[in-house]
Design a protein around this nucleic acid. Structure first.
Lengths: 186, 186
DNA sequence: ACAGTAACATACATGCATGTATGTAGGAGC
DNA sequence: GCTCCTACATACATGCATGTATGTTACTGT
């Protein structure tokens, strides 16, 4: 059920998501859905939590292994690109736009998840600048925002076109950081 | 009316856009809206056309002045970033996600506009590679897609945070192209 | 002065998605 | 064997946004 909800959310967004379709995609009826989740909002929150967990496990943790800030950021970019080949990873991107600037529980939760990611990137940018591996530039937070945005934008536009998505995501990330992307490719 | 519709579309998307709010934002009622436009779809198409025209005038034309492909692409990135400080420019981004993979007139029109942009970038990438100013890499079309996506993503995430948006957009574009962003900043 | 029409506002009908209330089958525990 | 509860399906009520039909006002041409 969560999986088809994630697929639906990433395709149609929250407002356009029809619960009957979600249920029938999962082989159930709307009754079953309302038995498992309080309402549409509850379902969306569950999907977001699931997506965030998946992200942390498959992208966040591996990237945290890297000791070098630049390597960690590039690993995040590559991991994110790979993860975004699956529907679950695109949920956050699809919903963030829909709820930006709104006061909705789903929007707040999304904002929270996104904020921790941006904070993490900001810290890495600052760390990289201290060691000199990242050149100076705009405020670290602005760089982090642009990094996440560019990454997600590129990956969405490529729509999981393996294997180029990974390389191009890494390049976009490197570019935002002010690094020569050709020296990243490894 | 077009302006408030553009604002509404960029904020809420097509499905969540409430025509009464659009009309009242513009100082009218829904009656006036239905007098000027056939229906919601007609309104959206008009907004898209308006946005596209604005883009061509304020971003496309200036960028076309540049003879060097790389300079043209970077000019596009900067121009796009500046334009996206206004609501009108974000309409396409907001709607593209909503209609991707759907068969809706609005989606088709959006696809058309987007496709000409991607084609244009593809040609520039190819031209740049022929002259050697852009290094080889993934297929030109994939690069173009990633370029546009990264650009839009970064600019949206920055939400018009002048003046960094312009620089970071240029950096993201340079990165995707495989160019050292520090040599672009000029 | 009057007809016609453009530019709106108002009122009504329709459809569709959500949410809730009610029904049903099957397994667990005693 | 009976009861109870879980996991669903079905049926119904509500609300809201769209689209359409029907005024109303004001201006314009003759």
């Amino acid at each position: 059920m969560l999986e088809s909800a994630a697929r639906g959310l990433s395709r149609y967004g929250y407002g356009n998501l029809v619960l009957e379709q979600v249920a029938s995609d999962a082989g159930y009826t709307r009754g079953a859905l309302y038995h498992q989740f309080k309402d549409k909002q509850d379902l969306a929150l569950a999907v977001i939590e699931w997506a965030d967990e998946t992200w942390r496990k498959e992208v966040g943790r591996p990237a945290a292994q890297e000791t070098d800030p630049v390597a960690a950021l590039i690993a995040m970019a590559r991991g994110h690109a790979v993860l975004c080949r699956r529907d679950v990873a695109r949920v956050a991107v699809a919903l963030r736009l829909e709820f930006s600037g709104q006061d909705h529980p789903v929007g707040r939760e999304l904002e929270r998840v996104s904020e921790t990611l941006v904070k993490r990137c900001t810290r890495l940018v600052n760390a990289g600048r201290r060691t000199g591996s990242i050149p100076p530039g705009p405020p670290a937070r602005a760089v982090a925002l642009a990094l996440v945005g560019a990454l997600e934008g590129a990956v969405i536009a490529l729509a999981g076109q393996a294997p180029h998505d990974e390389l191009l995501a890494a390049r976009a990330a490197a570019g935002v950081l002010g690094l020569d992307p050709m020296k990243i490719s490894e």
